[in-house]
Computed example of a mutant assay.
Amino acid sequence: MTQTVFCRKYQQELEALPFPPLPGKKGQEIQASVSKQAWEEWQALQTRLINEKHLSLLDPEARAYLNDQMERFLDNRETDRAEGYVPPAQ
């Protein structure tokens, strides 16, 4: 049986993450309040932001920026867009 969670992004019960996506308390909070679908969508946006903005995850400012963007995305607030990104044709 699939575990579900009330997703803070989609405001409905959806499939839960099988394990915390980050270490520590933050990862546990995300697992308890973010669906698998929302987390996968965040990972896609995060990848685009890293690539398009040439971010280095070794840079503390880049990590803080991505953490802020993650919170904004999961709370349905406006996030930065990757300039030049063209979604694939459906």
Rank of each mutant, 00 (worst) to 15 (best):
Q28E: 12
S33E: 04
E29L: 14
P87M: 05
P23Y: 08
V5F: 06
Q46D: 04
S56M: 02
G27R: 05
L55E: 01
A38H: 01
N67V: 05
P60I: 12
P21N: 01
I50W: 11
K36P: 06
E40F: 09
T2S: 04
K9T: 06
D68Q: 02
L14G: 08
Q28Y: 10
Q37M: 04
P60R: 06
K9H: 15
D80E: 14
Y65V: 06
E83P: 08
T47L: 04
K36N: 15
T79W: 00
Q3C: 14
A82Q: 04
Q12A: 14
P87W: 09
G27K: 14
A62G: 09
M1T: 10
K53Q: 15
W39G: 00
T2G: 13
A82V: 06
F6W: 03
E78V: 08
R72C: 05
D68N: 03
D59A: 11
P88C: 09
W42F: 13
S56D: 01
Q11W: 12
E83M: 13
T47I: 05
A38Q: 02
T47P: 00
G24T: 07
A32L: 05
C7M: 03
D80G: 02
Q43V: 13
A16Y: 12
E52S: 15
N51S: 15
A32D: 13
P60V: 12
Q11P: 05
R77T: 07
Y85Q: 01
E41C: 03
